[in-house]
Design a binder for these strands. Structure first.
Lengths: 150, 150
DNA sequence: CTCAAATCAATTGTGCACAATCAAACATTA
DNA sequence: TAATGTTTGATTGTGCACAATTGATTTGAG
């Protein structure tokens, strides 16, 4: 279905193909879909995988620390972490010295997923058709942009 | 809250900072947040804004055509379009020659938002601190990556 | 012409994402 | 220490995002 262009030509800056944000939005969603079959084997969603990446590295972190690193707030993290707690992937407990904080700790079932996840990054890079140096260049541009936006 | 590193150092490919996808995921969400104050004045969400960008250009499109261009399926678009229909921004009707298709047409209230949206792309570019040539370079890389992923 | 396959939108169910609000716990300072 | 303000997580409500299924419609092979 394709209509003829409207009588008044639109501002070129308002055409979808010229948008800054749309490619980020679309690539982000497509990347998540690309991860999906691998993560499904582990029973994880992409945001849950990100939480585990941090816990594999740090063993335990507060909800606040997770949110700071992932740029997610408690409205997103709390239900997500409760689902992972039900699966015994992690534990949630109040910090003894500061009852406001909730400490998220890695449990054995969560630790066990690390070995299964090892092959994921390499397979993703292959699917994206990126060499390691291209990846590094792209990532540094994105990190720089992210810093300007936050 | 920061715990000492775990006894077994994690695979560097599994560290958050080395992930390919996370920067896209984070930048995409941050960009949406950056748009938010401007779009709020128009009463639009970011995906609704994308639909209008296409309608400003094409006046009318089927749900299928919108989904193809935005890489969104009907489970996402149908409720979103119904909300926009309720606000009289667009119309939804079956195609006479093919009753399976639903044609989305721009209404005056939707057309009227175009003038108000004109200033948005420029303000976003300024906030992102990008020059036009940087933008073009980044966009071509992203478009290329998107093509490899789809 | 017939009916099996393909197309398209809608629906259902799950899981983010985020603004806004709240309440508890902690920190500060007068 | 009493009053005030800040930090932290949880809750609520709205709106995507997408997999899976359904049902109506159209197409096309025989």
């Amino acid at each position: 279905m394709q209509a003829p262009p409207p009588p008044t030509a639109p501002d070129p800056m308002l055409k979808l193909e010229n948008q800054l944000c749309f490619p980020f939005y679309a690539v982000s969603r497509q990347l998540t879909k690309t991860y999906q079959p691998y993560l499904q084997e582990l029973g994880l969603t992409y945001p849950q995988y990100l939480v585990l990446l941090l816990l594999w590295e740090h063993e335990q972190l507060t909800v606040k620390a997770l949110g700071d690193r992932l740029l997610l707030d408690s409205g997103t993290l709390t239900p997500l972490l409760k689902r992972m707690e039900q699966r015994q992937l992690l534990s949630r407990r109040r910090a003894p010295h500061d009852e406001r904080s909730v400490i998220i700790g890695l449990l054995p079932a969560g630790r066990a997923l690390e070995a299964q996840a090892r092959s994921i990054p390499g397979q993703l890079l292959a699917k994206a058709g990126l060499a390691l140096d291209e990846l590094a260049a792209l990532r540094s541009q994105l990190t720089q942009l992210l810093a300007r936006l936050t």
